[in-house]
Protein backbone atom coordinates (compact mmCIF):
# COMPACT_ATOMS: atom_id res chain seq x y z
CA UNK A 1 0.00 0.00 0.00
CA UNK A 2 2.92 2.34 0.83
CA UNK A 3 4.28 1.75 -2.65
CA UNK A 4 0.87 2.56 -4.09
CA UNK A 5 0.67 5.85 -2.16
CA UNK A 6 4.19 6.84 -3.22
CA UNK A 7 3.36 6.07 -6.83
CA UNK A 8 0.17 8.14 -6.63
CA UNK A 9 2.10 11.02 -5.06
CA UNK A 10 4.65 10.87 -7.87
CA UNK A 11 1.85 10.92 -10.41
CA UNK A 12 0.63 14.09 -8.70
CA UNK A 13 3.78 16.05 -9.56
CA UNK A 14 3.11 16.47 -13.30
CA UNK A 15 -0.53 17.20 -12.49
CA UNK A 16 0.48 19.97 -10.10
CA UNK A 17 2.96 21.42 -12.59
CA UNK A 18 0.20 21.34 -15.20
CA UNK A 19 -2.21 23.10 -12.83
CA UNK A 20 0.47 25.71 -12.21
CA UNK A 21 1.05 26.33 -15.91
CA UNK A 22 -2.67 26.51 -16.61
CA UNK A 23 -3.32 28.92 -13.75
CA UNK A 24 -0.51 31.11 -15.01
CA UNK A 25 -1.61 31.05 -18.60
CA UNK A 26 -5.28 31.72 -17.80
CA UNK A 27 -4.58 34.48 -15.29
CA UNK A 28 -2.10 36.36 -17.43
CA UNK A 29 -4.20 35.87 -20.53
CA UNK A 30 -6.81 38.09 -18.85
CA UNK A 31 -4.56 40.33 -16.74
CA UNK A 32 -1.17 41.68 -17.69
CA UNK A 33 1.23 42.76 -14.93
CA UNK A 34 0.49 46.34 -16.04
CA UNK A 35 -3.22 45.76 -15.44
CA UNK A 36 -2.49 44.34 -12.03
CA UNK A 37 -0.34 47.35 -11.15
CA UNK A 38 -3.02 49.75 -12.31
CA UNK A 39 -5.64 47.92 -10.33
CA UNK A 40 -3.62 48.06 -7.13
CA UNK A 41 -2.46 51.63 -7.60
CA UNK A 42 -5.96 52.94 -8.30
CA UNK A 43 -7.59 54.74 -11.20
CA UNK A 44 -6.55 58.32 -10.65
CA UNK A 45 -3.15 59.86 -11.34
CA UNK A 46 -1.19 56.67 -11.93
CA UNK A 47 2.14 57.30 -13.65
CA UNK A 48 4.08 54.80 -15.79
CA UNK A 49 6.91 55.18 -13.28
CA UNK A 50 4.65 54.08 -10.42
CA UNK A 51 3.56 51.08 -12.48
CA UNK A 52 7.18 50.09 -13.10
CA UNK A 53 8.01 50.52 -9.41
CA UNK A 54 5.02 48.39 -8.41
CA UNK A 55 6.04 45.62 -10.77
CA UNK A 56 9.62 45.61 -9.49
CA UNK A 57 8.41 45.65 -5.89
CA UNK A 58 6.08 42.67 -6.47
CA UNK A 59 8.26 40.64 -8.82
CA UNK A 60 6.26 41.15 -12.01
CA UNK A 61 8.90 43.00 -14.02
CA UNK A 62 10.35 39.89 -15.70
CA UNK A 63 8.84 38.08 -18.71
CA UNK A 64 6.20 35.46 -17.98
CA UNK A 65 7.80 32.18 -19.17
CA UNK A 66 10.98 32.93 -21.07
CA UNK A 67 13.53 35.68 -20.48
CA UNK A 68 15.36 36.08 -23.79
CA UNK A 69 17.64 38.78 -22.42
CA UNK A 70 18.95 36.73 -19.49
CA UNK A 71 22.04 34.57 -19.80
CA UNK A 72 22.06 30.74 -19.67
CA UNK A 73 19.64 29.04 -17.31
CA UNK A 74 18.42 32.45 -16.17
CA UNK A 75 16.38 32.51 -19.35
CA UNK A 76 14.01 30.14 -17.56
CA UNK A 77 14.60 31.05 -13.93
CA UNK A 78 14.38 34.84 -14.23
CA UNK A 79 10.72 34.69 -15.18
CA UNK A 80 7.54 35.38 -13.30
CA UNK A 81 6.48 31.76 -13.71
CA UNK A 82 9.62 30.31 -12.16
CA UNK A 83 9.90 32.86 -9.36
CA UNK A 84 6.29 32.44 -8.31
CA UNK A 85 6.03 28.67 -8.79
CA UNK A 86 9.09 27.11 -7.22
CA UNK A 87 8.28 28.26 -3.69
CA UNK A 88 4.71 27.15 -4.10
CA UNK A 89 5.78 23.58 -4.80
CA UNK A 90 7.16 23.44 -1.26
CA UNK A 91 4.06 25.19 0.13
CA UNK A 92 5.75 28.53 0.66
CA UNK A 93 2.84 30.70 -0.45
CA UNK A 94 4.79 33.93 -0.10
CA UNK A 95 3.10 37.31 0.03
CA UNK A 96 -0.03 38.49 -1.68
CA UNK A 97 0.10 41.41 -4.06
CA UNK A 98 -1.21 43.57 -1.26
CA UNK A 99 1.74 42.49 0.89
CA UNK A 100 0.03 40.00 3.21
CA UNK A 101 1.51 36.66 4.28
CA UNK A 102 -0.73 34.23 2.37
CA UNK A 103 0.14 31.22 4.52
CA UNK A 104 -0.85 33.08 7.69
CA UNK A 105 -4.08 34.33 6.13
CA UNK A 106 -4.98 30.80 5.03
CA UNK A 107 -4.33 29.45 8.51
CA UNK A 108 -6.51 32.18 10.02
CA UNK A 109 -9.36 31.91 7.56
CA UNK A 110 -9.66 28.14 7.34
CA UNK A 111 -11.38 28.01 10.75
CA UNK A 112 -14.50 29.98 9.84
CA UNK A 113 -14.76 27.86 6.69
CA UNK A 114 -14.44 24.67 8.72
CA UNK A 115 -17.01 25.95 11.23
CA UNK A 116 -19.56 25.92 8.42
CA UNK A 117 -18.32 23.06 6.27
CA UNK A 118 -17.61 20.35 8.84
CA UNK A 119 -21.05 20.33 10.53
CA UNK A 120 -22.73 20.68 7.15
CA UNK A 121 -20.76 17.70 5.88
CA UNK A 122 -21.07 15.43 8.92
CA UNK A 123 -24.68 16.14 9.85
CA UNK A 124 -25.61 16.38 6.19
CA UNK A 125 -24.16 12.98 5.40
CA UNK A 126 -26.01 11.39 8.30
CA UNK A 127 -29.28 13.05 7.28
CA UNK A 128 -28.92 12.19 3.58
CA UNK A 129 -28.14 8.53 4.30
CA UNK A 130 -30.95 8.23 6.83
CA UNK A 131 -33.52 9.84 4.55
CA UNK A 132 -32.39 7.72 1.58
CA UNK A 133 -32.60 4.55 3.65
CA UNK A 134 -36.05 5.51 4.87
CA UNK A 135 -37.30 5.96 1.32
CA UNK A 136 -35.84 2.55 0.50
CA UNK A 137 -37.67 1.15 3.49
CA UNK A 138 -40.91 2.63 2.20
CA UNK A 139 -40.19 1.86 -1.43
CA UNK A 140 -43.26 1.44 -3.59
CA UNK A 141 -45.48 3.36 -1.14
CA UNK A 142 -46.87 6.86 -1.37
CA UNK A 143 -44.23 7.94 1.13
CA UNK A 144 -41.51 6.83 -1.27
CA UNK A 145 -43.19 8.54 -4.19
CA UNK A 146 -43.74 11.71 -2.19
CA UNK A 147 -40.13 11.66 -1.00
CA UNK A 148 -38.79 11.32 -4.52
CA UNK A 149 -41.00 14.12 -5.85
CA UNK A 150 -39.94 16.35 -2.96
CA UNK A 151 -36.29 15.50 -3.64
CA UNK A 152 -36.63 16.42 -7.31
CA UNK A 153 -38.26 19.71 -6.35
CA UNK A 154 -35.55 20.44 -3.79
CA UNK A 155 -32.70 19.66 -6.13
CA UNK A 156 -34.24 21.90 -8.79
CA UNK A 157 -34.08 24.97 -6.56
CA UNK A 158 -30.98 27.12 -6.74
CA UNK A 159 -28.71 27.31 -3.72
CA UNK A 160 -29.10 31.07 -3.81
CA UNK A 161 -32.82 30.70 -3.25
CA UNK A 162 -32.25 28.66 -0.11
CA UNK A 163 -29.81 31.26 1.18
CA UNK A 164 -31.93 34.32 0.47
CA UNK A 165 -35.16 32.57 1.46
CA UNK A 166 -33.57 31.27 4.67
CA UNK A 167 -32.22 34.66 5.59
CA UNK A 168 -35.58 36.23 4.86
CA UNK A 169 -37.59 33.74 6.86
CA UNK A 170 -35.40 32.93 9.85
CA UNK A 171 -33.43 36.16 10.22
CA UNK A 172 -35.67 38.89 8.92
CA UNK A 173 -39.23 37.68 9.57
CA UNK A 174 -38.79 35.38 12.57
CA UNK A 175 -35.67 37.19 13.88
CA UNK A 176 -34.23 33.99 15.31
CA UNK A 177 -30.60 34.33 14.19
CA UNK A 178 -28.39 37.14 12.86
CA UNK A 179 -28.67 37.72 9.13
CA UNK A 180 -24.91 37.74 8.67
CA UNK A 181 -21.70 38.09 10.60
CA UNK A 182 -19.25 35.95 12.48
CA UNK A 183 -17.64 35.61 15.87
CA UNK A 184 -15.09 33.30 17.36
CA UNK A 185 -15.51 30.55 19.97
CA UNK A 186 -18.94 29.60 21.23
CA UNK A 187 -20.35 32.89 20.03
CA UNK A 188 -19.92 31.56 16.50
CA UNK A 189 -22.87 29.20 17.08
CA UNK A 190 -25.62 31.72 16.35
CA UNK A 191 -23.87 32.75 13.13
CA UNK A 192 -23.21 29.27 11.77
CA UNK A 193 -26.47 27.55 12.65
CA UNK A 194 -28.47 28.98 9.75
CA UNK A 195 -25.82 28.46 7.03
CA UNK A 196 -25.33 24.90 8.27
CA UNK A 197 -29.06 24.13 8.25
CA UNK A 198 -29.47 25.68 4.82
CA UNK A 199 -26.41 23.84 3.54
CA UNK A 200 -27.90 20.55 4.69
CA UNK A 201 -31.41 21.25 3.45
CA UNK A 202 -30.21 22.42 0.04
CA UNK A 203 -28.29 19.17 -0.42
CA UNK A 204 -31.04 16.78 0.67
CA UNK A 205 -32.73 16.49 -2.73
CA UNK A 206 -29.72 15.52 -4.85
CA UNK A 207 -28.01 13.39 -2.21
CA UNK A 208 -31.16 11.51 -1.22
CA UNK A 209 -31.86 10.61 -4.87
CA UNK A 210 -28.30 9.45 -5.43
CA UNK A 211 -27.98 7.39 -2.26
CA UNK A 212 -31.44 5.92 -2.75
CA UNK A 213 -30.27 4.55 -6.08
CA UNK A 214 -27.22 2.96 -4.45
CA UNK A 215 -29.36 1.39 -1.73
CA UNK A 216 -32.01 0.15 -4.13
CA UNK A 217 -29.28 -1.70 -6.04
CA UNK A 218 -28.31 -3.51 -2.84
CA UNK A 219 -31.81 -4.12 -1.48
CA UNK A 220 -32.77 -7.19 -3.64
CA UNK A 221 -29.46 -9.00 -3.09
CA UNK A 222 -29.24 -12.41 -1.45
CA UNK A 223 -27.44 -11.28 1.69
CA UNK A 224 -30.30 -8.85 2.40
CA UNK A 225 -32.84 -11.62 2.02
CA UNK A 226 -30.72 -13.80 4.29
CA UNK A 227 -30.59 -11.06 6.92
CA UNK A 228 -34.33 -10.72 6.84
CA UNK A 229 -34.73 -14.47 7.01
CA UNK A 230 -32.63 -14.45 10.18
CA UNK A 231 -35.35 -12.25 11.69
CA UNK A 232 -33.46 -8.98 11.82
CA UNK A 233 -35.56 -5.85 11.98
CA UNK A 234 -35.81 -3.82 8.79
CA UNK A 235 -33.93 -0.90 10.37
CA UNK A 236 -31.09 -3.22 11.31
CA UNK A 237 -31.05 -4.72 7.84
CA UNK A 238 -30.84 -1.33 6.22
CA UNK A 239 -28.35 0.38 8.54
CA UNK A 240 -26.14 -2.62 9.27
CA UNK A 241 -26.11 -4.51 5.98
CA UNK A 242 -27.39 -2.48 3.05
CA UNK A 243 -25.54 0.65 4.11
CA UNK A 244 -22.23 -1.15 4.59
CA UNK A 245 -22.38 -2.75 1.17
CA UNK A 246 -23.38 0.48 -0.56
CA UNK A 247 -20.44 2.33 0.96
CA UNK A 248 -18.10 2.09 -2.05
CA UNK A 249 -20.13 4.33 -4.38
CA UNK A 250 -20.93 6.63 -1.45
CA UNK A 251 -17.26 6.91 -0.50
CA UNK A 252 -16.33 7.76 -4.08
CA UNK A 253 -18.20 11.01 -3.79
CA UNK A 254 -17.72 11.70 -0.10
CA UNK A 255 -14.10 11.11 0.91
CA UNK A 256 -12.74 13.18 -1.91
CA UNK A 257 -14.64 16.15 -0.50
CA UNK A 258 -13.20 15.91 3.01
CA UNK A 259 -9.84 17.65 2.40
CA UNK A 260 -11.47 20.38 0.37
CA UNK A 261 -13.91 21.25 3.14
CA UNK A 262 -11.64 23.94 4.45
CA UNK A 263 -11.61 25.78 1.17
CA UNK A 264 -15.08 26.90 2.13
CA UNK A 265 -18.27 27.76 0.34
CA UNK A 266 -18.33 30.75 -1.94
CA UNK A 267 -22.02 31.66 -1.79
CA UNK A 268 -22.53 30.85 1.88
CA UNK A 269 -19.53 32.89 2.99
CA UNK A 270 -20.43 35.78 0.80
CA UNK A 271 -24.07 36.06 1.92
CA UNK A 272 -23.51 35.25 5.57
CA UNK A 273 -20.39 37.40 5.96
CA UNK A 274 -18.27 34.45 7.01
CA UNK A 275 -14.59 35.45 6.79
CA UNK A 276 -13.48 32.09 5.41
CA UNK A 277 -11.36 30.90 2.53
CA UNK A 278 -14.20 30.95 0.02
CA UNK A 279 -14.61 34.68 0.53
CA UNK A 280 -10.81 35.01 0.53
CA UNK A 281 -10.63 33.45 -2.94
CA UNK A 282 -13.49 35.55 -4.30
CA UNK A 283 -11.85 38.73 -3.00
CA UNK A 284 -8.55 37.72 -4.61
CA UNK A 285 -10.19 37.12 -7.98
CA UNK A 286 -11.97 40.45 -7.79
CA UNK A 287 -8.81 42.31 -6.82
CA UNK A 288 -6.65 40.50 -9.41
CA UNK A 289 -4.33 39.30 -6.66
CA UNK A 290 -2.36 36.66 -8.46
CA UNK A 291 -0.45 35.54 -5.35
CA UNK A 292 -3.64 34.45 -3.58
CA UNK A 293 -5.42 33.05 -6.65
CA UNK A 294 -2.34 31.01 -7.50
CA UNK A 295 -1.97 29.71 -3.94
CA UNK A 296 -5.64 28.79 -3.60
CA UNK A 297 -5.83 27.01 -6.96
CA UNK A 298 -2.67 25.10 -6.14
CA UNK A 299 -3.94 24.20 -2.69
CA UNK A 300 -7.25 23.09 -4.15
CA UNK A 301 -5.44 20.82 -6.60
CA UNK A 302 -3.25 19.32 -3.86
CA UNK A 303 -6.23 18.69 -1.62
CA UNK A 304 -8.19 17.12 -4.43
CA UNK A 305 -5.34 14.73 -5.14
CA UNK A 306 -5.09 13.92 -1.43
CA UNK A 307 -8.85 13.32 -1.44
CA UNK A 308 -8.59 10.87 -4.33
CA UNK A 309 -5.83 8.93 -2.58
CA UNK A 310 -7.87 8.87 0.62
CA UNK A 311 -10.84 7.55 -1.34
CA UNK A 312 -8.75 4.69 -2.68
CA UNK A 313 -7.54 3.90 0.82
CA UNK A 314 -11.08 4.04 2.14
CA UNK A 315 -12.15 1.40 -0.39
CA UNK A 316 -9.81 -1.08 1.25
CA UNK A 317 -11.34 -0.35 4.63
CA UNK A 318 -14.96 -0.94 3.60
CA UNK A 319 -14.34 -3.74 1.13
CA UNK A 320 -11.62 -6.27 2.03
CA UNK A 321 -11.68 -7.59 -1.53
CA UNK A 322 -10.13 -4.33 -2.79
CA UNK A 323 -6.32 -4.46 -2.98
CA UNK A 324 -4.16 -1.45 -3.86
CA UNK A 325 -1.30 -2.51 -6.09
Amino acid sequence: MIRYIIRRLLYAIPILVGVNVLTFALFFFVNTPNDMARFHLGIKRVTPQAITEWKIEHGYNDPLFYNARAPGIDKLTRTIFFQHSVKLLVFDFGQSDSGRDIGYDIRQRMWPSLAIQVPTFVVGLAVYISVALMTVFFRGTYLDLGGVILAVVMMSISMLFYVIGGQYLFSKVLRLVPISGYDTGLSAFKFVVLPVVLGIVSGIGASMRLYRTFFLEEAPRDYVRTARAKGLSEIRVLFRHVLKNAMIPILTGVVVVIPTLFIGGLIMESFFGIPGLGAYTIDAVRSQDFGIVHAMVYLGAVLYIVGLIMTDLAYTLVDPRVRLE
Binding site: Q167, I179, S180, G273, P275, A279
Partner: peptide, 11 residues
Protein backbone atom coordinates in the same frame (compact mmCIF):
# COMPACT_ATOMS: atom_id res chain seq x y z
CA UNK B 1 -17.71 43.66 6.16
CA UNK B 2 -20.94 43.14 4.23
CA UNK B 3 -20.36 41.72 0.78
CA UNK B 4 -24.02 41.63 -0.23
CA UNK B 5 -26.59 44.40 -0.20
CA UNK B 6 -29.51 42.33 1.10
CA UNK B 7 -28.01 41.45 4.50
CA UNK B 8 -26.70 45.02 4.83
CA UNK B 9 -30.14 46.51 4.23
CA UNK B 10 -31.96 44.01 6.46
CA UNK B 11 -29.57 44.68 9.32
Amino acid sequence: RERETIPYWDK
